[in-house]
Amino acid sequence: MEDTLLWIVGVLLLLFCSLDVWYYLRAVVVLIRAWFLSPVFDITAEQTASGRVVLHDVDLCHMNNARYLRECDFARFSLYTRNGVFKALRALGATMVVGATTIRYRRPLCVGEAFEIRSRIVTWDEKSFYLEQRFVSCKDGMVSAVMFCKQNVLRSSPDKILQYLCKRKVEVPEFPEDLQHWINFISASSKALRGEGQLDDKKSE
């Protein structure tokens, strides 16, 4: 009995030392909860996830900057489960990865403060979905932070996902001005990095 208990403790310690166990546990809980919520058939509809700042989220009594991105992960898991995107990805043999994010912090979320993450798919192109995620304080309704996320689709495309879900061709929404500026920045950054790579190749010749 003691040997079994020691073995279990050892395995748990190994897991907690080598993996972010709490992240995976939280992801499972989010996915199960979203599965039992009512589906959302409008692909661009805003969905809300609730949260509260707890002690392991903070540095200097407010939410750590990196925690915002982590919370956005969980909000997207719920979004894609309820609007059917995850289901479409499985059916099409596709997957998604984050290609770029940018976040603007407007006011800190403090310990114990309740907040909502309001997530929505804004638009898409031939390769990626573009999302906006807002952190809204439940105390006074102020937008404490706002993030843009470029979600790249691999082995398929946003159009194919939407045709699978809607059984028809879906018109692409217009790109808001602020989002378009960010996309232009990404394109310029990629072009500059490709140029640096070409210079490195020439130097090595």
Rank of each mutant, 00 (worst) to 15 (best):
C110N: 10
M142E: 14
F115D: 01
K87R: 14
H62F: 13
W22A: 13
S190E: 12
V28L: 06
K203P: 12
M142P: 06
Q133C: 09
V98I: 12
L69N: 14
L15Q: 06
Y164H: 15
P173I: 07
K127V: 06
L193G: 03
M96P: 01
R120M: 03
V97N: 11
G141N: 00
S187T: 14
K139W: 11
Y130F: 12
W182D: 02
K127H: 09
E205T: 11
V40C: 12
D20F: 14
P173W: 02
L55M: 14
S157M: 04
P39G: 06
E177C: 08
Q163G: 05
R134Q: 07
A114V: 11
I103S: 08
D140K: 00
P108A: 10
T4S: 13
E113R: 04
V170K: 00
S189T: 13
S78R: 04
L154W: 04
I32M: 09
P108S: 12
L131H: 09
L6T: 10
P39Q: 02
E113H: 08
W35P: 05
A145P: 03
L12D: 08
R33G: 04
T81F: 02
T101V: 10
L5P: 05
K160N: 11
Y23V: 13
V143N: 00
D200G: 05
T81D: 03
R194E: 10
I186N: 03
Y130S: 12
R76I: 01
K87D: 12
L109K: 12
S189L: 10
G99Y: 02
V54P: 00
G51V: 04
